[in-house]
Design a protein around this nucleic acid. Structure first.
Lengths: 357, 357
DNA sequence: CTGAAAGCGCTTACAG
DNA sequence: CTGAAAGCGCTTACAG
């Protein structure tokens, strides 16, 4: 199939045209399946394309069409972000289905100048749209409030961040997730329910924490709101956090942990301390990692479908792209916008005990 | 800073030139920090760039230079591939440092035509180089044997695959990893050492399996080579695999499990069956997931630094790109090529018992 | 059905 | 130090 070019020189449309004895745009028409070509000419051109091993240059094409069919993804690539990169997989897959490629960029710092650099990068590369998937840490997303986002040459969709006027966001209601998690523990007659949060500069952590507080308040247990320590979302911080929590709150009989990974550390430490789960202390996490069902005991947790979130965000973005250009968007993108996705309680032995195993 | 263009029209170099009253290539010189410009002119042009909010088009630039500063990554984005996507993070990061962006593509099928489609995609998009990170499944990589890889317009580096003549590969010696894992169990006086492999169409699984067999043979225990079942690398297959293994091999006193995830399933099932780990059965995995240290008991495993693998592969690729163009390559890429990376035994309670805890 | 012209936004020689 | 010309590889109107 592929004919080698001695010099690694690119085979161009002009080469094909010359060989086929037609003009460039006739060749172009064949490449683009335009109807206006004799079957005979078409066949000849196709033959030349094959013989020469011609591949159209997306670059040149993009330069004319003003469209790159590339989406930029800005992420803070911390290990384990968005549940083991599953969300990223969802994006790649959905992008592929919609005919787009993904350009990955990492951001490690969130100053205004870093944001500018990142946006410039993506604009220079003519991405058709942007998925902003960096976690909201401190005021990392503050620039969106005053930056003229609408003046960007392309639409942008933000993942799992504080909703902002004029910004498309897709994510979960982490407040409600935290609240429902705590309600589950309350429903099991626990009354001293502590919380180990993720890093508190993070919006997601704050939301879950606030949900926990709200549930306690709702149950008339506001005084328990002091049963709280901050972790870092990693498995290593689970054990130490549990110990600190027991210092603060010796009567602890349940704990809502801000991630399944930390919950594993908690289970491990509880075991070492001789605490029985759930008899002495009920433990629940949030994430529903695939492994959580195999912890000892299996972990009760809140499931958030991050893959779906990624797909929804991507479809919304592609839809916005089409809208800006007054083009019809793909049917797949016409689905209702679910900008706030729902979670699901996965109840297992770490709160229910063996009876239901 | 950024001046809005009413129509979303791109600000071009021509706009800047006109406003500054200079020619396009003088403006170009300023943008590219070329020396040959009066300080005065430079200042004027820079002012116009800022006022107009000009951003150079990477597309147009690439079209001339024949260089896109983009690397294609072909992956089979299965969940958990390359330990939680950590390898991908390594690539993004290293690419960024070397001034490249990453274009992600997923491959789910490995027929020759799929390969062609993928390569064409990447060639069309003018990537400067390719990281082939799809797992080697069956004959998924067979095309590399006869395909004129050298005739591709860009270099390619293959990750964790069977070495092939004329192909740059970066990966681990999984045979040796399997062998050393088994040796560890042998050193603990275990004599009935079973193996639960990953999917056997996969080259990596085959290698680890072969390493296990070699170690048994070396110890004069070739008859134990029947103590083997095939898993699928996921946590769900650990328990069922252990049961099947005990059917085949009732005297089992140790098991080398092909992934930490499956090992978790094994620990869970052993616990349910009343088997003590490691007294009744020693368990070891391979991967060294961050969580493995917190399993009950903590899991002995083989560590493979997939992040390093990704970085090494990327640097090698960038080096090859430079070599093809007879350009000096970045200092970072001059490091010795470590195409076969080493693993490390992480010994924990699941084989050693409590004494060392 | 097919082609000559102009242009996408920039850069690389070549002049001055 | 600066500019007019040609070109990267393709496409979009406009003619015929």
């Amino acid at each position: 199939m592929d004919r080698k070019k001695t010099q690694g020189q690119r085979v161009t449309l002009a080469d094909v045209a010359k060989m086929a004895g037609v003009s460039k745009q006739t060749a172009s028409r064949v490449v683009n399946d335009s109807a206006q070509v004799t079957e005979e000419t078409r066949a000849r051109v196709l033959k030349c394309i094959e013989v020469l091993g011609f591949r159209p240059s997306a670059l040149a094409r993009q330069l004319n069409s003003g469209r790159s069919y590339t989406l930029g993804v800005v992420a803070n690539a911390e290990i384990g972000y968005l549940t083991n990169g599953a969300a990223y997989v969802g994006m790649v897959r959905q992008a592929d289905q919609l005919g787009y490629a993904l350009l990955s960029k990492e951001m490690r710092e969130f100053s205004r100048s870093s944001v500018d650099i990142m946006l410039n990068h993506l604009i220079e590369r003519h991405v058709d749209g942007i998925i902003w998937a960096g976690p909201e840490i401190g005021d990392s997303h503050a620039w969106m409030n005053d930056y003229p986002i609408d003046d960007l040459p392309m639409p942008i969709v933000v993942i799992n961040a504080h909703p902002r006027a004029g910004v498309d966001t897709v994510g979960f209601d982490n407040f409600l997730a935290g609240k429902n998690a705590t309600r589950h523990l309350l429903s099991l007659q626990r009354r001293h329910i502590g919380h180990i949060s993720g890093p508190m500069q993070r919006w997601v952590s704050q939301q879950r924490w606030a949900g926990w507080r709200a549930a306690l308040e709702e149950a008339g247990l506001a005084e328990e709101q002091s049963c709280y320590v901050e972790g870092d979302w990693e498995v290593t911080s689970g054990g130490p956090s549990l110990r600190r929590l027991l210092d603060v709150c010796p009567q602890l009989d349940a704990v809502f942990v801000g991630s399944d990974r930390m919950a594993l550390g908690v289970l491990h430490e509880a075991h070492r301390m001789g605490l029985r789960v759930p008899e002495d202390i009920a433990v629940m996490g949030i994430d529903n990692d695939p492994q959580s069902a195999y912890f000892m005991p299996p972990l009760t947790t809140m499931h958030q479908n991050t893959v779906l979130m990624a797909e929804v965000a991507l479809r919304l973005l592609v839809r916005r792209i089409s809208e800006r250009r007054d083009e019809p968007y793909p049917a797949a993108c016409a689905e209702a916008e679910a900008t706030v996705l729902t979670h699901e309680l996965i109840a297992r032995e770490s709160t229910l005990g063996k009876s239901t195993a």
